[in-house]
Design a protein around this nucleic acid. Sequence first.
DNA 1: TTTTATCTCCGCCTTAGGTCTGAGTTTTAT
DNA 2: ATAAAACTCAGACCTAAGGCGGAGATAAAA
Lengths: 207, 207
Amino acid sequence: MDNKIKVLVVDDHDMVRMGLVTYLGVEEDMAVVGEACNGEEAITKAKETSPDVILMDLLMEKMNGIEATKVLAKTKAKIIVLTSYLDDEMLFPVMDAGAFSYLLKTSTADEIADAIRKAMNEEPTFQGQVTQKMFRHMREKPKHDELTKREREVLCLIGQGKTNKDISEELYIGIKTVKTHVSHILAKLELEDRTQAAIYANKHQLV
Amino acid sequence: MDNKIKVLVVDDHDMVRMGLVTYLGVEEDMAVVGEACNGEEAITKAKETSPDVILMDLLMEKMNGIEATKVLAKTKAKIIVLTSYLDDEMLFPVMDAGAFSYLLKTSTADEIADAIRKAMNEEPTFQGQVTQKMFRHMREKPKHDELTKREREVLCLIGQGKTNKDISEELYIGIKTVKTHVSHILAKLELEDRTQAAIYANKHQLV
DNA sequence: TTTTATCTCCGCCTTAGGTCTGAGTTTTAT
DNA sequence: ATAAAACTCAGACCTAAGGCGGAGATAAAA
């Protein structure tokens, strides 16, 4: 049957690609028409095979999924992001780039097949928490982006265990100024002391 | 043949498991005897199937790979960590926990099959840069096991951003005593203040 | 142009954090 | 039984940290 949904699989892990091909192989109404292990290859293969749907991983060498999505979003192909973790830093950029659906790799075979069919039907699919995150992201932006650039610099240094004196020397400013920044940081982040700030910085990868 | 190497696959991604099963299916001398999608399930399945080798992912719900490894290291099974990224924060803890080999998911089928056979032969396998990282880690012994039990407790609380007063109340001891412990901790870990101690605690998963 | 935000710095004051010395009690190892 | 750690606490002492209020300079936004 030539009416099968043509799927392109993009992932840098051999195993995942093999798993997907095996997965989709049992579905009668779809066929994997190509595989790619990075963004560049994805673009080439997409030209060759003009797929209906692209299953796209995000973290890859050479060209990551976001860049590739920006390019491929202009084609007719529906792009379904299929990634390991629910990462704010990737989720929003890739949706902006033109991704159609967003699934996690913890998805079952059925869920993925389902998302592919829905995509062909102009219906996007988002996995559970993704939707919530989207909303939560709308209301409460992470507190630390209320910080000014300078404050973020200071927080970063606190996160490295620097004292106020260290920081003042590193930024070529007075120690009083550093104290002012620290006070503002603690107030904005609703923390009590620099120790908690250091923990915050590390937990939020601001170091 | 009953002499096949019995392999248990532990990963929270259906696809990866399916990929691995497909991969290993073509190898004549090994057989996948079970699959698990988290640490807890891994322990159950290991009891049922008593595998020779366990392919273990690290990031999973319920019980992560490090915890599971701690438990399963006591069995005869050789544990091969098979994870996405080369992360210091995971590498050393899991090796300490008793993992036998450490591979990345970018590995090819051959490399994985090879690592399994070598494991049966008491030969560990480490992917590329892992070995270097290991050596670098050996030289610098983890200083924090010079700490006494009480000191570790205090360090843990510092790592949660607690003040000396908080800690004294939580442990039902005087604030002076807490100070004594803190001084000892800083001296033993060669740190300068509680902020650095908090960072240390978090980086070394002592929270 | 006027307002608003940011970055800089001052002085004063209080407290938490940390060092040092010393010492009594309990656990654990030998 | 004896020695060695570990846990507890005290007093004296010093410093870094942080709050509070004020303020000048600059730059961006309204």
